[in-house]
Amino acid sequence: MATLEIRDLHVSVEADNSTKEILKGVDLTVKQGETHAIMGPNGSGKSTLAYSIAGHPKYTITSGTVTLDGEDVLEMSVDERARAGMFLAMQYPVEVPGVSVSNFLRTSATAIRGEAPKLRTWVKEVKTAMETLQMDPAFAERNVNEGFSGGEKKRHEILQLELLKPKIAILDETDSGLDVDALRQVSEGVNRVHASGEVGTLLITHYTRILRYIKPDFVHVFAKGKIVASGGPELADELEAEGYEKYTKGGVTA
């Protein structure tokens, strides 16, 4: 069973000629089949955690470890991490001019699976996945994320999640900016992937709204660069009722 282990992770960024530490010792273990929700206020470092694990060059790991089944993730290049089974659904997916969705999906599936998928089954696979997410087939011929609405971008991320079948999926605020219909469709996609039992999910969110559709096994509260509380789904209910205030006020996290 695939396990992602994050131990005492410290991460900083360069900003205005100074170094700012954003993650201040994160510990977390995500196993295949589990769903973890990481909840926290804006600026607490949630997205930094997601991007650091994926290997974004902007972030510098100053100490700590991230391993996937014992393999050192931090030693891997961005593409190696993906091929090892990591997936990051981004909050702001990037536009890529000149590359059609269909070409992109096939190229990444080829990279992840180690061989080009057989054309006939592949076409059917993509078509079915798009239908389930209620995406227009014409979508496949558009350039990646170019001119996509917020909802289309997120659906496209979940489409990739379904096709690439990672071991560990990190969903960075996939719910933000979605209307209720899109939120439901996206959540159904995440639940389908979860139902396979093959994926460990790290769901990063600001709002409790998505947890009406996706039921986490574990809920973690993230504040000031680290996890400050962990519990079961009941923790999300508490956050919905009381907000983050208790965790962001000085003293508690110190």
Partner: peptide, 23 residues
């Protein structure tokens, strides 16, 4: 863009080729 494509398992040189060929 490079990060986005690489985060889907695509190697850097392949990502560049993909973009330019597509263009």
């Amino acid at each position: 863009q490079l990060f986005y494509l690489m985060s889907r398992g695509i190697r850097a040189e392949e990502a560049r080729r993909l973009v330019v060929r597509g263009f």
